[in-house]
Amino acid sequence: MRVIAGTLKGRQLKAVPGNKTRPTTDKVKEAIFQIIGPFFDGGYCLDLFAGSGSLGIEALSRGMQHTVFVDKQSKAIHTIHENIRDLNLESNTEVFRTDATRAIHAASKRGLQFDLILLDPPYSKADYGELLNEIVKLNLIKQEGYIYCEHDQNEVLPKNPTHYTLVKHAAYGGTIGVSLYQKT
């Protein structure tokens, strides 16, 4: 696993030990960042269900100013801290061990708003419609901000949710589905 593009291009990332996380493939990362970027001029990113942190780190490498990483697994949190330390990204990141619902409510209380929110939960373990609605309700996504959802290809995600436009829906490798929304 590695960083695909930007200032950290080619740098290796550690994976979370065990089989509770599934890293996003390089092909999927490249395809999705070509749509939403491919590079950024600052901005804030929220990486929920962060796993190793590879998506949030990719966003930082491509120019995001700050990324908040959230995962509830201790092994994932440890791996995120290792990857951040190895890449000298401590000043551009925050890491929290908690579940997604608590994390988005805490971010709202802090008045945070994000340009990019990355949702890559364990397949079939999250209600994307509920998450998308809660993100809008809590005012966490900036106008024209993107929300990336990685899911099982057979999982049905909202096609026309209120306050969002579905920018892309694609399948990769026969099992991975990707849906990209933009706040309207």
Results as ranks from 00 to 15, higher is better:
M1R: 11
M1K: 11
I4D: 10
A5F: 11
A5R: 08
G6C: 08
T7M: 10
T7R: 14
L8K: 08
L8P: 10
L8Q: 12
R11L: 06
V16Y: 10
P17S: 11
P17D: 10
G18M: 08
D26C: 05
D26I: 12
D26N: 13
V28W: 08
I32R: 03
Q34E: 12
Q34W: 03
I35A: 04
F40W: 09
G43Y: 08
Y44N: 14
C45H: 03
L46A: 01
L46H: 00
L48F: 06
F49T: 06
A50E: 06
G53A: 02
L55N: 08
L55A: 02
I57S: 05
I57H: 08
A59D: 05
G63H: 04
G63C: 04
Q65Y: 11
F69V: 01
K72S: 08
K72R: 13
Q73S: 14
A76P: 05
I77A: 01
I77N: 04
I80H: 05
H81R: 15
L87M: 09
N92P: 01
R102V: 07
R102L: 08
A103L: 03
I104A: 00
I104K: 04
H105F: 12
H105W: 09
A106M: 06
S108I: 04
G111E: 05
Q113V: 13
Q113C: 09
Q113G: 05
Q113M: 13
L118V: 13
L118Y: 11
L118R: 03
D120W: 08
P121D: 05
Y123N: 01
A126V: 15
D127M: 06
Y128D: 07
Y128W: 09
E130C: 02
N133Y: 08
N133S: 14
E134G: 00
E134C: 01
I135F: 04
N139G: 07
N139D: 15
K142R: 15
Q143A: 11
Q143G: 02
I147D: 06
I147Y: 06
Y148A: 01
H151K: 00
Q153T: 10
Q153M: 07
P158W: 04
N160G: 03
N160C: 03
T162E: 15
T165R: 13
V167Q: 07
V167D: 02
K168L: 12
A170L: 03
Y172F: 07
Y172V: 04
G174F: 00
T175L: 05
S179V: 12
S179A: 14
L180P: 06
Y181N: 13
Y181M: 12
Q182R: 15
T184L: 08
